[in-house]
Amino acid sequence: MLEQLLRWKILLGIVLIIVLIGTIHYTSLTRPKISFLEGAWRDALAPLQLVLSRAQRFFRQATSVFRNIGDLQRRNKELETLVFDLQQKVFSLQNHKRENEWLREALDFVSDMPHELLVAEVIGRSPSNWESTITINKGHKHGVASGMAVITNAGIVGTVINSSLYTSIVLLATDSQSATGGLVQSSGDLVLIEGDPSNAGMMIATPLGRDTEVEEGDLIVTSGLSRIYPKNISVGEVIAVEPREYELSFAALVRPSVNFSRLEYVLVVLPDG
C-alpha cells in the first residue's frame, strides 16, 4: 500500500515538473494573447495598484511643493522665456505649414492621416527589477491590443505586449528586448534603437547604413517604417557616440525624451479606421 502511494507520488511529481517546464517554456515567448487566469488576476489586482499609485503620486506632489519652491521660481522664469521663443516658432511653423499644404496640393500628395489616440493612466510597473514594463488601465474592452504604440507628448514610451480585459502591459522602449526604427533628425539617416542592457533607462542607436552620421546632441525621431509608431515622434537625444570593435561601426547612447520614472498618463496609438 505504502509502496503504491509512493509510486503515485513520484509519478505525480514527474507530471507536475513536466507541466511546470512546459508552462515556463510556453510563456518564455512573447504572446499576443494571455490566458484567462492571467487576465483575471491582473484585472483583480488593477484597482489596488491604481489606488496605491495615486496615493504615491499624491504624496510625492504634496511634498515636492515644499521641497522645490526655489526651483519652481527659477523654472517659472525659464519657462516664460521659453514660451516667448516658442510663440515665435509657432508663427513661423504656421507659415511653413500653409506653404507645405499648398505644395502638397500642387504635387497631388496624400497627406498623413492623423492617428486616433486613447488616453490611459499608468497604474503599475513590473514587480521585477529585470523587466522594464508598465501597466495601463486600458485593455481589450477599450480597443487596445498587442503591438500598439504608446507615446506621450514628449516622445515614445513603448509598445503594448499583451492586454487583459481592463489592463495592458507596455514594454518600455528602454527594455533590452525592445527595438524601434529611428531616424537621425539632422541627417535623415536610419538607425535601430534598442534598450541599453548596460545603462538602466538609456537606449542605444546602431546605424542601419554604412555612411550613417550621428553626433552628440542629435535628436532621434521615429522613422515610421515599422508601422508601429507614427512618423517623427521624438525618441531621444544622442549623448555619446562610441566606436564598436575595429571601429567599423558605432553605437550612440541615447537619452530618452520621456522621463519614465514620472509617467502618469500615456497615449495609445489606435490603428487607423
Binding site: 496605491l52 521585477s128 508598465i134
Partner: peptide, 25 residues
C-alpha cells in the same frame, strides 16, 4: 502576498530605494 505584490508593482516610480526595487514578495 497580494498586498506586498500591489505595493511592489505600484508606480512608477513606486517603491524604489537606492535605485533598486525591493522584492517584497
Amino acid at each position: 502576498f497580494v498586498a506586498a505584490l500591489a505595493l511592489q508593482s505600484a508606480g512608477p516610480p513606486g517603491l524604489v530605494l537606492f535605485g533598486v526595487q525591493p522584492q517584497l514578495v
